[in-house]
């Protein structure tokens, strides 16, 4: 069966005055149908830019310079390359097939239009329904995401909602056209921990009900462990490892993922164990290390190899990993 969405060698660069920042530089990942893929990585690794590139939402000075983004609407039909699609076709895909929830629920809804107005607008844009039917859909969706008294709240403005309620409203809006894929870009980062757990539960419930795939962008391995079926790990603008969540999080292959997993604080860990951070710092944006991009920080660095050869993706157990440690085994 085809995955729902395949991203192949996506490159999105920021063309700035003093050089080019290759924020996304060769990202390849796939989103399975009806499942949840978590994309994890440190700040600045290109997670959000990848998410925005999928719907071609990046703005100047960022520019998508290469790659393919293939949407397989049916499991065996012709794929649609979103990067090559005409603007009009792309606008049809937006929200109807792929919807998005952003990081800041405060800022991602217009404060001078009612919640209902913003949902109804999306519904009527993609479906040939009347105002009243669209309004009923909005009320139904608001009720479904757990907003009390939706008949009344549909006419509220976003600033009359709390942060968690706003994110619920945003999710209601995102699901109002029944998309096949929901991209959630750090949807819980701006919320407190209790609300965060509620929102994640809600997303999982809705996924079961509507059967959509979710691509969850997060820097929080805990969040990924809680909801993801698959995990893709990004470092410096590329995916270094993708595989089933249980495998990647409990037996990571890539030294970077291993270091990330070690750096998560655990309840019940012995007091004298110090928290291990990933060694070194992220290299400056204008200079990418040669060879494997992680080599200057890697514990398993092999001189004369890792700093020369660019690793290709290989499969080890169920995991796709880009690391020379595993390339060896294969050849």
């Amino acid at each position: 069966m085809q995955p729902l969405l395949e991203v192949r060698s996506l490159r999105t660069h920021f063309e700035l005055g003093d050089g080019v920042v290759k924020a996304v530089d060769g990202v390849s990942l796939s989103v399975p149908r009806g499942r949840t893929l978590a994309v994890v990585g440190e700040s600045g690794c290109g997670k959000s830019v990848t998410a925005r590139s999928i719907l071609r939402l990046v703005e100047k000075p960022a520019r998508i310079v290469g790659g393919e983004i293939l949407l397989h609407p049916d499991s065996d039909g012709e794929p649609l390359d979103l990067l090559a699609a005409k603007d009009k076709r792309l606008r049809q895909v937006r929200w109807a097939d792929i919807a998005m929830v952003f990081q800041e629920p405060m800022a991602s809804l217009s404060l001078v239009h009612t919640i209902g107005d913003q949902i109804i607008e999306a519904v009527r844009l993609h479906e040939n329904v009347g105002k009243q039917a669209a309004r009923e859909r909005a009320i139904e969706m608001l009720g479904r995401v757990g907003i009390p008294d939706p008949q009344r709240r549909v006419d509220s403005y976003p600033f009359q909602f709390s942060g968690g309620m706003r994110q619920r409203a945003m999710i209601a809006m995102a699901l109002s056209c029944r998309p096949r894929l929901l991209i959630a870009d750090e949807p819980t980062t701006a919320l407190d921990v209790t609300t965060q757990a509620q929102i994640l539960d809600l997303l999982q419930d809705l996924q079961q009900e509507f059967g959509m795939a979710i691509m969850l962008i997060t820097h929080d391995l805990g969040v990924a462990a809680q909801v993801a079926d698959e995990v893709a790990v990004m470092y410096l603008g590329e995916v270094v490892e993708q595989g089933p969540a249980s495998a990647v999080l409990s037996h990571p292959k890539h030294p970077y993922t291993q270091a990330l997993v070690r750096s998560v604080p655990r309840l019940g860990a012995r007091g004298q164990d110090r928290l291990v951070a990933v060694r070194g710092t992220v290299p400056p944006p204008y200079e990418r290390p040669t060879g494997c991009r992680f080599h200057p920080r890697c514990d398993a660095f092999m001189a004369g190899k890792c700093d020369v050869t660019v690793p290709t993706r290989v499969r080890s157990d169920e995991i796709d990993v880009a690391c020379l440690l595993y390339g060896e085994e294969k050849s």
Binding site: R52, L55, L57, R91, Q92, V93, R94, W95, A96, A99, M100, F102, Q103, E104, A107, S108, L109, S110, L111, E121, A122, L125, H126, M170
Partner: peptide
């Protein structure tokens, strides 16, 4: 961001 949302809506 609300402009990006509107754009994402198509």
């Amino acid at each position: 961001p609300y402009v990006a949302t509107a754009r994402a809506k198509g």
